[in-house]
Protein backbone atom coordinates (compact mmCIF):
# COMPACT_ATOMS: atom_id res chain seq x y z
CA UNK A 1 0.00 0.00 0.00
CA UNK A 2 1.15 3.51 -0.74
CA UNK A 3 0.20 6.62 1.24
CA UNK A 4 0.86 10.04 -0.23
CA UNK A 5 0.98 12.92 2.25
CA UNK A 6 0.81 16.42 0.84
CA UNK A 7 2.61 18.87 3.08
CA UNK A 8 3.19 22.61 2.96
CA UNK A 9 5.88 24.87 4.24
CA UNK A 10 4.00 27.72 5.87
CA UNK A 11 5.03 31.27 6.59
CA UNK A 12 4.99 32.08 10.28
CA UNK A 13 4.75 35.77 11.11
CA UNK A 14 6.32 37.34 14.21
CA UNK A 15 4.13 39.15 16.75
CA UNK A 16 5.53 42.46 15.53
CA UNK A 17 5.89 42.78 11.76
CA UNK A 18 5.86 45.09 8.77
CA UNK A 19 4.15 44.65 5.43
CA UNK A 20 6.15 44.94 2.22
CA UNK A 21 3.81 45.14 -0.77
CA UNK A 22 1.76 41.96 -0.97
CA UNK A 23 3.78 40.05 1.59
CA UNK A 24 5.16 40.29 5.09
CA UNK A 25 8.63 41.83 5.26
CA UNK A 26 11.19 38.96 5.20
CA UNK A 27 12.74 40.13 8.44
CA UNK A 28 9.61 39.12 10.37
CA UNK A 29 8.94 35.67 8.99
CA UNK A 30 10.14 32.14 9.60
CA UNK A 31 9.09 28.95 7.85
CA UNK A 32 7.80 25.71 9.29
CA UNK A 33 5.95 22.51 8.44
CA UNK A 34 2.23 23.31 8.47
CA UNK A 35 0.73 22.28 11.82
CA UNK A 36 -2.18 20.33 10.29
CA UNK A 37 0.23 18.50 7.98
CA UNK A 38 2.25 17.32 10.97
CA UNK A 39 -0.80 15.37 12.08
CA UNK A 40 -1.26 14.00 8.55
CA UNK A 41 2.36 12.82 8.48
CA UNK A 42 1.99 11.22 11.90
CA UNK A 43 -1.19 9.42 10.83
CA UNK A 44 0.56 8.03 7.73
CA UNK A 45 3.65 6.94 9.64
CA UNK A 46 1.50 5.28 12.32
CA UNK A 47 -0.35 3.29 9.65
CA UNK A 48 2.99 2.26 8.13
CA UNK A 49 4.10 0.98 11.54
CA UNK A 50 0.88 -0.99 12.09
CA UNK A 51 0.41 -2.45 8.63
CA UNK A 52 2.98 -4.38 6.65
CA UNK A 53 4.39 -3.13 3.39
CA UNK A 54 3.26 0.49 3.45
CA UNK A 55 5.29 3.17 1.70
CA UNK A 56 4.81 6.78 2.81
CA UNK A 57 5.67 9.42 0.22
CA UNK A 58 5.41 13.14 0.97
CA UNK A 59 4.89 15.78 -1.67
CA UNK A 60 5.13 19.53 -1.44
CA UNK A 61 5.08 22.56 -3.72
CA UNK A 62 7.85 24.91 -2.70
CA UNK A 63 11.26 26.46 -3.36
CA UNK A 64 14.60 24.91 -2.38
CA UNK A 65 14.21 26.40 1.09
CA UNK A 66 11.29 23.98 1.63
CA UNK A 67 13.69 21.01 1.57
CA UNK A 68 14.33 21.69 5.24
CA UNK A 69 10.62 21.40 5.99
CA UNK A 70 10.11 18.28 3.93
CA UNK A 71 13.11 16.66 5.65
CA UNK A 72 11.17 17.09 8.90
CA UNK A 73 8.56 14.73 7.48
CA UNK A 74 11.29 12.32 6.36
CA UNK A 75 12.86 12.47 9.83
CA UNK A 76 9.52 11.47 11.36
CA UNK A 77 9.37 8.37 9.22
CA UNK A 78 8.20 9.16 5.69
CA UNK A 79 10.13 7.03 3.19
CA UNK A 80 10.80 9.53 0.43
CA UNK A 81 9.75 12.95 -0.80
CA UNK A 82 8.87 14.84 -3.95
CA UNK A 83 9.15 18.61 -4.22
CA UNK A 84 7.50 20.42 -7.12
CA UNK A 85 8.93 23.75 -8.13
CA UNK A 86 9.07 26.19 -10.98
CA UNK A 87 10.63 29.63 -10.65
CA UNK A 88 7.48 31.17 -12.04
CA UNK A 89 5.75 30.01 -8.86
CA UNK A 90 7.82 32.51 -6.90
CA UNK A 91 5.97 35.30 -8.69
CA UNK A 92 2.51 33.93 -7.97
CA UNK A 93 1.18 35.88 -5.00
CA UNK A 94 -1.30 33.21 -4.06
CA UNK A 95 -1.92 29.75 -5.47
CA UNK A 96 -5.58 29.08 -5.99
CA UNK A 97 -6.91 25.65 -4.99
CA UNK A 98 -7.30 24.47 -8.60
CA UNK A 99 -3.66 25.29 -9.44
CA UNK A 100 -2.43 23.57 -6.31
CA UNK A 101 -4.57 20.52 -7.12
CA UNK A 102 -3.15 20.48 -10.66
CA UNK A 103 0.45 20.42 -9.40
CA UNK A 104 -0.12 17.93 -6.60
CA UNK A 105 -2.45 15.91 -8.81
CA UNK A 106 0.28 15.41 -11.41
CA UNK A 107 2.50 13.87 -8.73
CA UNK A 108 -0.37 11.80 -7.37
CA UNK A 109 -1.05 10.41 -10.83
CA UNK A 110 2.60 9.33 -11.10
CA UNK A 111 2.60 7.81 -7.62
CA UNK A 112 -0.83 6.19 -7.83
CA UNK A 113 -1.41 6.05 -4.04
CA UNK A 114 -4.13 4.07 -2.23
CA UNK A 115 -4.60 6.82 0.31
CA UNK A 116 -3.79 10.55 0.27
CA UNK A 117 -3.56 12.44 3.55
CA UNK A 118 -3.28 16.19 3.92
CA UNK A 119 -3.92 18.79 6.62
CA UNK A 120 -7.37 20.39 6.85
CA UNK A 121 -5.87 23.77 6.03
CA UNK A 122 -2.63 25.70 6.12
CA UNK A 123 -1.73 28.08 8.90
CA UNK A 124 -0.89 30.93 6.51
CA UNK A 125 -3.39 31.05 3.60
CA UNK A 126 -6.06 28.97 5.39
CA UNK A 127 -7.89 28.23 2.15
CA UNK A 128 -8.80 24.76 3.42
CA UNK A 129 -9.52 23.52 -0.09
CA UNK A 130 -6.49 21.60 -1.37
CA UNK A 131 -7.49 18.11 -0.25
CA UNK A 132 -11.02 18.06 -1.62
CA UNK A 133 -9.95 19.81 -4.87
CA UNK A 134 -7.29 17.14 -5.28
CA UNK A 135 -9.75 14.30 -4.63
CA UNK A 136 -12.14 15.64 -7.22
CA UNK A 137 -9.31 15.98 -9.71
CA UNK A 138 -8.13 12.42 -9.08
CA UNK A 139 -11.70 11.09 -9.08
CA UNK A 140 -11.13 9.65 -5.62
CA UNK A 141 -13.43 9.57 -2.64
CA UNK A 142 -12.73 11.99 0.18
CA UNK A 143 -13.57 13.21 3.66
CA UNK A 144 -12.73 16.63 5.09
CA UNK A 145 -11.83 17.41 8.71
CA UNK A 146 -11.11 13.88 9.86
CA UNK A 147 -10.35 13.44 13.56
CA UNK A 148 -10.44 9.64 13.72
CA UNK A 149 -9.31 7.16 11.09
CA UNK A 150 -9.65 3.40 11.02
CA UNK A 151 -8.35 2.01 7.78
CA UNK A 152 -9.76 -1.24 6.51
CA UNK A 153 -7.61 -1.89 3.48
CA UNK A 154 -9.11 -5.38 2.99
CA UNK A 155 -12.61 -3.96 2.60
CA UNK A 156 -11.23 -1.01 0.64
CA UNK A 157 -12.85 1.39 3.09
CA UNK A 158 -11.71 4.10 5.49
CA UNK A 159 -13.95 4.39 8.55
CA UNK A 160 -13.66 8.00 9.65
CA UNK A 161 -15.00 10.51 12.10
CA UNK A 162 -15.41 14.02 10.75
CA UNK A 163 -15.26 16.74 13.35
CA UNK A 164 -18.35 18.91 12.88
CA UNK A 165 -18.99 22.10 14.82
CA UNK A 166 -20.20 22.00 18.42
CA UNK A 167 -18.51 18.83 19.63
CA UNK A 168 -20.35 16.49 17.24
CA UNK A 169 -18.61 13.93 15.05
CA UNK A 170 -20.07 12.59 11.83
CA UNK A 171 -19.21 8.93 11.31
CA UNK A 172 -18.68 7.92 7.69
CA UNK A 173 -17.34 5.20 5.48
CA UNK A 174 -15.28 6.36 2.52
CA UNK A 175 -14.30 4.11 -0.37
CA UNK A 176 -10.60 3.83 -1.14
CA UNK A 177 -8.64 5.22 -2.83
CA UNK A 178 -9.47 8.42 -1.00
CA UNK A 179 -8.14 11.79 0.09
CA UNK A 180 -8.62 12.56 3.78
CA UNK A 181 -7.98 15.99 5.25
CA UNK A 182 -6.64 15.57 8.76
CA UNK A 183 -7.64 17.69 11.74
CA UNK A 184 -5.28 18.60 14.57
CA UNK A 185 -5.66 16.45 17.67
CA UNK A 186 -6.28 13.20 15.73
CA UNK A 187 -2.98 11.84 17.11
CA UNK A 188 0.07 12.94 19.04
CA UNK A 189 2.74 13.91 16.49
CA UNK A 190 6.14 12.52 17.42
CA UNK A 191 9.34 14.49 17.66
CA UNK A 192 11.92 13.35 15.15
CA UNK A 193 14.61 11.24 16.80
CA UNK A 194 18.29 12.04 16.23
CA UNK A 195 18.51 8.81 14.30
CA UNK A 196 15.49 9.84 12.23
CA UNK A 197 17.04 13.21 11.47
CA UNK A 198 20.28 11.51 10.37
CA UNK A 199 18.43 9.01 8.20
CA UNK A 200 16.35 11.77 6.61
CA UNK A 201 19.49 13.26 5.08
CA UNK A 202 20.00 10.19 2.93
CA UNK A 203 16.38 9.61 1.95
CA UNK A 204 15.32 10.30 -1.60
CA UNK A 205 14.04 13.83 -2.24
CA UNK A 206 13.14 14.25 -5.91
CA UNK A 207 12.68 17.73 -7.34
CA UNK A 208 10.25 17.97 -10.24
CA UNK A 209 9.60 20.80 -12.64
CA UNK A 210 6.38 21.38 -14.54
CA UNK A 211 8.07 19.80 -17.57
CA UNK A 212 8.94 16.69 -15.56
CA UNK A 213 5.28 16.37 -14.65
CA UNK A 214 4.09 16.90 -18.20
CA UNK A 215 2.44 20.21 -17.31
CA UNK A 216 2.48 23.14 -19.71
CA UNK A 217 3.16 26.71 -18.59
CA UNK A 218 -0.60 27.38 -18.51
CA UNK A 219 -0.79 25.03 -15.52
CA UNK A 220 0.01 28.10 -13.44
CA UNK A 221 -2.68 30.35 -14.90
CA UNK A 222 -4.77 31.47 -12.00
CA UNK A 223 -8.07 33.35 -12.19
CA UNK A 224 -7.55 34.87 -8.77
CA UNK A 225 -5.14 37.63 -7.87
CA UNK A 226 -4.14 39.03 -4.53
CA UNK A 227 -4.50 42.81 -4.75
CA UNK A 228 -3.80 44.16 -1.27
CA UNK A 229 -2.39 43.18 2.09
CA UNK A 230 -2.93 45.28 5.18
CA UNK A 231 -3.36 45.16 8.91
CA UNK A 232 -7.06 45.13 9.77
CA UNK A 233 -8.31 48.19 11.58
CA UNK A 234 -8.56 47.19 15.15
CA UNK A 235 -12.14 46.97 16.26
CA UNK A 236 -10.95 46.64 19.79
CA UNK A 237 -11.94 49.03 22.52
CA UNK A 238 -10.20 47.13 25.25
CA UNK A 239 -9.13 49.09 28.28
CA UNK A 240 -5.47 48.16 28.72
CA UNK A 241 -3.90 48.06 32.15
CA UNK A 242 -0.34 49.33 31.96
CA UNK A 243 2.72 49.05 34.12
CA UNK A 244 4.68 46.22 35.70
CA UNK A 245 3.09 42.82 36.33
CA UNK A 246 2.41 43.64 39.99
CA UNK A 247 0.67 46.84 39.03
CA UNK A 248 -1.46 45.43 36.19
CA UNK A 249 -2.38 42.36 38.22
CA UNK A 250 -3.48 44.66 41.07
CA UNK A 251 -5.69 46.72 38.77
CA UNK A 252 -7.19 43.61 37.19
CA UNK A 253 -7.82 42.15 40.66
CA UNK A 254 -9.73 45.32 41.53
CA UNK A 255 -11.85 44.98 38.42
CA UNK A 256 -12.56 41.31 39.10
CA UNK A 257 -13.60 42.05 42.69
CA UNK A 258 -15.93 44.75 41.38
CA UNK A 259 -17.55 42.06 39.21
CA UNK A 260 -17.97 39.88 42.30
CA UNK A 261 -15.25 37.40 41.31
CA UNK A 262 -13.20 35.68 44.01
CA UNK A 263 -15.34 37.01 46.87
Amino acid sequence: MKILVTVKEVTVVDDEFEIDGLSIDDRYVTYDLNEWDEYAVEEAVTIAEDVEDVEVVTVTVGPERADETIRQALAKGADRAVRVWDDRLAEASMLDPATKARLLGAVAEEEDPDLVLTGVQSGDDSLGATGVSLAERLEMGWAAVVNQLDLSADEGVAHVHRELEGGVDEISDVELPAVLTIQTGINDPRYASLRGIRQAQSKDLAVKSLDDLGLGPDALDSPIEQTALYEPETEGEATLFEGGAGETAGELAGLLREKGVGQ
Binding site: G128, A129, T130, S133, A144
Partner: peptide, 24 residues
Amino acid sequence: PHTVNGMDYAPAVASQLDRPLVTD
Protein backbone atom coordinates in the same frame (compact mmCIF):
# COMPACT_ATOMS: atom_id res chain seq x y z
CA PRO B 1 -20.72 28.25 3.94
CA HIS B 2 -17.12 28.00 5.15
CA THR B 3 -18.16 25.37 7.67
CA VAL B 4 -16.87 21.83 8.15
CA ASN B 5 -19.44 20.54 5.67
CA GLY B 6 -18.86 23.50 3.36
CA MET B 7 -15.16 22.57 3.30
CA ASP B 8 -16.26 19.02 2.49
CA TYR B 9 -17.99 19.91 -0.77
CA ALA B 10 -17.32 23.49 -1.97
CA PRO B 11 -13.90 22.67 -3.54
CA ALA B 12 -15.44 19.75 -5.43
CA VAL B 13 -18.35 21.87 -6.67
CA ALA B 14 -15.94 24.55 -7.92
CA SER B 15 -13.77 21.93 -9.55
CA GLN B 16 -16.73 20.20 -11.25
CA LEU B 17 -18.05 23.52 -12.52
CA ASP B 18 -14.56 24.69 -13.47
CA ARG B 19 -15.15 27.96 -11.61
CA PRO B 20 -12.59 29.71 -9.44
CA LEU B 21 -12.95 29.21 -5.69
CA VAL B 22 -12.14 31.67 -2.94
CA THR B 23 -12.77 30.45 0.60
CA ASP B 24 -13.44 31.95 4.01
